[in-house]
């Protein structure tokens, strides 16, 4: 088994679907989207492949050290939403192909007009501990 981080950025889908903010969908479309996300996670829990996942608040702050004894420097929040991370999930699957398959399913969540939003999902393998047996 190998763990992967799936990052949702809410970007990259076809414009007519992706550029409609959720509050412009019909209530039924909102519900269908939410139900899809829940069912997707429940399916992976059922197969023993779901590890964890959280939705994130859209606004965040950048922070960096500013020298000893000084408060950290902060910046933002930024209006730029192109690189917004909307949430993340960790899955634990047998193969890389399975990770892609699962991410592909998630990207098909229905959006405005019931069409799949086809957003990009970033799939990042975890760096694992070195194996005990190496030969």
């Amino acid at each position: 088994m190998a763990k992967y981080l799936l990052l949702k950025h809410y970007r990259g889908g076809p414009a007519p679907v992706n550029e409609v903010p959720m509050e412009q969908w019909t209530p039924q479309e909102v519900s269908a989207h939410m139900r899809f996300m829940r069912d997707w996670a429940a399916r992976l829990e059922g197969t023993g492949e779901f590890v964890d996942g959280q939705a994130l608040s859209p606004e965040g702050t950048f922070v960096r050290h500013d020298g000893a004894g000084r408060p950290p420097v902060t910046d933002g929040p930024f209006a730029e939403t192109k690189d917004l991370i909307a949430g993340w999930m960790v899955i634990d699957v047998e193969t890389y192909e399975r990770a892609l398959e699962v991410a592909g399913e998630l990207s098909a969540a229905p959006g405005a007009g019931g069409r799949p939003i086809q957003e990009w999902l970033e799939v990042r393998p975890f760096l694992a501990d070195p194996p005990t047996v190496t030969e």
Partner: peptide, 30 residues
Amino acid sequence: AARLYAEAAAKAPSLAEREHLTRQAARLNA
């Protein structure tokens, strides 16, 4: 109201509240 609901959804402290507020905005917009 719809504009404020959408704004409130973006600031919501929990997923359940965000969904609820988004749905309120969607209801008014639809």
